[in-house]
Structure formats: structure tokens, C-alpha cells
Design a protein around this nucleic acid. Sequence first.
DNA 1: TTGAAAGCGCTAACAG
DNA 2: CTGTTAGCGCTTTCAA
Lengths: 342, 342
Amino acid sequence: MTSSQKPRRSVTIKDVAKKAGTSIATVSYVFSNAERYLRPELRERVLQAAAEIGYVKNAAASSIKGKRRGILAVVVAQFGNTFFTRMCVEIVSIARQEGYVVTLCNSDEDPEQERIILERLVAQRIDGCILCPAQSTEDNTALLQRHRIPYVILERSFPESFAPHNFVGQDNFQSGYLATTHLLEAGHRRIAFSGWDSPIPNVRERVDGYRAALREYGVSPNQELVLTDELSEAAGRRMAGKFLAAGVTAAVLGQHDTAKGALQHFQDNNIHWPQDISLVVVGTPEWTGVLRPRLTCIQRPEHQMAVTAATMLLNNIKNPEVDLVKQLYTCTVAEGESVLRM
Amino acid sequence: MTSSQKPRRSVTIKDVAKKAGTSIATVSYVFSNAERYLRPELRERVLQAAAEIGYVKNAAASSIKGKRRGILAVVVAQFGNTFFTRMCVEIVSIARQEGYVVTLCNSDEDPEQERIILERLVAQRIDGCILCPAQSTEDNTALLQRHRIPYVILERSFPESFAPHNFVGQDNFQSGYLATTHLLEAGHRRIAFSGWDSPIPNVRERVDGYRAALREYGVSPNQELVLTDELSEAAGRRMAGKFLAAGVTAAVLGQHDTAKGALQHFQDNNIHWPQDISLVVVGTPEWTGVLRPRLTCIQRPEHQMAVTAATMLLNNIKNPEVDLVKQLYTCTVAEGESVLRM
DNA sequence: TTGAAAGCGCTAACAG
DNA sequence: CTGTTAGCGCTTTCAA
């Protein structure tokens, strides 16, 4: 396998053609047109020659002739977030089955970074893109549209006023509602909500769900119990301190980074769940796996979302005229032992 | 910004040239040769025209003329592993400064997948690759070599007999040695080691370090206390059960997935650290952040490793004749409260 | 100071 | 059944 050949410039169909004693067209057909009939003997000879000199088709060259590039991109806003990591793994594996390589990019919640990334992806003439937007600006996706690159917006919804687009997400209102209802049904009434004070609507929607649930149970939402702060563990600890001081019996930890901080605060201050406080976490971050008692979590259909997003994109690439789709999934309660029945 | 133009085929320098009333050569110079002098007025006119019709240079086309592709790849074996995630974030950010887009790939510990991935990356004519090999086979990297794609092996070392290559890693022997010494110095003598029964040498090297440390303290390594098993949390729980039954006072949790299982086992069975067992974890997985008492961890220089690997690669790309480098980092103890002094 | 034109590696109509 | 050839979008030499 390891040939001793060390070509200065990369080997091309020309080299293969010479080696096989045929034309470059034939070589091209062997590698990119299964339909075309060739004498099996010839085909074999070409394959043989190619293998011997280590030929690998140049996808860049073939793409400028209108063939697909063979690259998809996934742009997320928080690379370290396991929620995204898990979806990425799924997307990559589906894309691979269709022969695509996936470029994973991280905007780090910065719309400007996102713009730079998308520009570069457009320059690469990627075949499609799954985007979890850093902020609901339309400018960035306009880039994709202008270059007719199919895309799917994942997890963070755009306002209705934006240009039509594919969307896969989970119902944030419902997850906030579900978490709160779960606590209300266990008899809690003084329930805090902590989350990220974010520019994107996700957390706000969860808060809306939280409020709706309270009202439904005749509890008037107390503004003091709805805490949002910056995206950090320290902020999570701060908020935990605050709602404990406010004397709540339960809390919805509405965002994973800040939730992590809250759990640190509890442990460092000898606060036990569910005895001292009942907890529901929105999402199932990696670290919930090692905590005991087990935390009750709002589980998002990560797997399903990833599969749908990938399939939707692939579908849209194959058939650009396909109708744009919006798919909203609902969450479920993964029950742990962090909620005390009162 | 959002032009109403919806070109059927993507816009090229030709379109820009026509719009600006100049030649395609001039347009090309504007976008890829800062040296070449052009009348500022003309340059401006071209830029203007390009912006108006939304031109973005086709990196694929420009790459077949020998220009760089603008793509680097990072191939890891365990995508979900925060150790890799953290390094990826760092690598991506350095690469971005140099104008590269990074393709992240996951071989999922499967050499065959890895081969397919590398083949595809070669087809894309990527400019360089950082590879954390799924298994120490040389065939896969031969592909890169044959196509003269610079690469850096990350974290998992190849045997000396392999073709010369860039390498950045951490000293696994030393991390095993360090973890064990830390426990020995606290007075422990019956110390278990649990890890992954892996095809790659990392864990074995850590075991060697563990053994060396024991011998240095006059403890003859007990084969029964060195446990390795498959890569899963369940395996971690099994091993924890075993070494507890063997009556150890301390354990080195030598691999993150199995360590996670072990910690679940302890909590589920009311085993407390450090009272019932002293613990040192090799690595600093995400979930160590939420556990109390804090775990003592062997910290790898993740940040440094990522920076070095990225820099090394970029360096090698700029200057292909550069000498190949091997860089081995040592680990440090991040002290927690999981080790009892006896 | 600018542009014409010859490729780069590959595809696909078309001719044989 | 196979090969010739005209491009794809871009770079760069060379001549104007």
C-alpha cells in the first residue's frame, strides 16, 4: 500500500490515464459516472493504475464543474455544550452515510464571528449548512440565501418576519411549563427560575412557560423569583444564593451553565436536594450523570432533532424546490429524585 | 445588504469584471494579490461592483491553481470527550486567525472510519491535519504523507518505528506515576488502578507509571488491583465494585468514562470519598466541576497542547521543509479534597 | 498600470 | 465502447 512514490505535485487523472494507457475522460468516468458503460477490463485497469500511484479525486476541482462539494457545515454557538455535541455526533454520522464531510464551527455566541464563519463557508461553496444562530439577525442567513446554499436553523428560532427557512427546534415554552408544572403538582408554590439573561428568545420563552404554569395553578408569578444573569457558573452560584435567601422550596434551573453553578453553591453550602430544595433542570447536561440524588431533568429530543435536521438538509440539497419545513419537538420529564412531594 | 439579486449560478469574477468594466485578471488581483499595484480608483470600483452583486471568491476554484485550500482538519477518536472538545475550541480559534476553516471529524475509535475520513479529507485537499489516532496503524497516515499533507499527531503516540511525524502529547507514564505518588505520599499502600482496556498505549503507559511509583515506595504491584475493562460507565461501576471488594484504601481512576461509572457506583452504594476511599482522577472531565468533596485530578496541559499542535501545523504548512517536532508535556496535580492522609 | 490568454484537475457533450 | 475537447472559476505570466 505504502508506495515509494512521492509525487511533488498531487497525482491527477492525467497520471492515471498515462499509467493505464487510456484517456483522461475514461478515468473521469470510472471515478464519477457509474452509469457510463466501460469494458470491465478497462475499468479494472484504471482502478489498478489509480491504486498504484495513489490517486485520490480532487473534490475541489470536481466541484467547480457544478458537482457537489461534499461538505456540509454545522455552526453552533456554544461548542462546549454537550447538548450540541451530542447533536453534532448524530449529524456527522448521518452526513457520512451520504458521503459528506462535516465542518463544525463555533460562533461562541458572537454574531460577528458567525458572519465571518458563514462567509468562509460560502467561499468554500459548501453544499448545505445547519445553523444554530448566535443571535436572531437576518443578515447572516441572507448570505446563505444569496448563494443558494440550503440551510436549516436549529434550536434557536427566528422571528416569523424573517425570510422563510427550514427549522428544527424544541418548544421552550413547553419545557419551562413542564418543569414548573412538575413542581406545582408535587405541591410546591414558591418556585424560583434561574437562567441566562440572553439575547436569544429561548430562555425568555421558558420563563413564559414557567409563568403560565404558575398562573394556571393560581399562583401569581413573583418577579423576584425570576432570576437571569450572565452566562457563567459564577452567575449560577449568585442566583442560587439569591433564591435560597428568598425562601423558595423549589427551583427550575433553566440553563445548563448557570445550573452547574447553582449545584456547586448548594453543595458548598450544605444545601441538600430534595430535602432543602426541590430541583428541576432544563436539559440533561453531561454532569447530571454523576450527581446523586439524581436530578429530575427536562429531556430534549436531541437525537430526534439531529436526525430531523440532517435529513431535512439532505433532502433540501437533493431537491432545492422542496417546501421549507418547521419542526417543533416537545420535551419530556426524566424523573430523578430531586423533587420532594409536599 | 440583502440584494434582490438571486443569481441562478453563483457569481464569479467574470460578473464582477463586467459590472466594473474591467478584466477578470484585475478582479482576481484585487481579491488575491495585495502586492500588485492597481489604481486605487479601479480597485475601489471592483470592490464596489463585487459588493453590489454579492461576490464571494470560490475557494475551491482558487485551490486547484495551487493556492491553499483554507481548510484544516482535526480528527479525534472521541468526540464527546471534553478533553478533546476543549482542545478543539482552542485549535479552531488559532486557525481562524490565519484564515482557516476547521473540519472536525470523529473516528469513534474505529480505524476503518478513520481511514474513510482521511480519504475524504485528502479528496478535499485540506491544507493540514491534526490527528488523534484511533489506533496506532501507520496505513492511515501514509495516505496523508503520500499527498504531502502536513499533519500533527495529537495525544496518542506512535511507535518509534513509524515514519517521522510531528507529535504533541502528554506524558502518560508520568501522569500515572504522579497520581500514584500522590496517594503513596499520603500514606496509602493498597492502591487500585482502573482504566480502559484499550488498543492504544496511553492507559498502559499510565499503568506503567503506577507500577513504577509503587516499586519506588517498596510496594510490590498487585496484579489484582490493576483493573481494565471496556470503554463504558458500566465497566467503571464493575471495576469500582471489584476494587472495593479487594479492600483498597485508594484508587487511581485512570480514564474518564470509566471514572464516571466508578463515581456513580460510590454514590449509589454510600461510599464516601475521602473517608471510605481516597481518589485521584487522571484528567479533568467536565463533571468533576460539580462533585463535592472536590476530586484531586491529574491536570493535563490541554490549552498548551492545543496551542502547540495548531502552531506546529501552521508552521509546517508555511514551511514544508521544517524539521518535524516532538513535544511531550507533563501533567500536574490539581489538588482537591479526595485524598485522606493516613 | 492593465489585460489576454494559458492553464489548474475535472466533467460531459459529442464525435467517432 | 472510448476519446477529443470545450469549458468550470480562478491565477499568473507575459505582452501591451
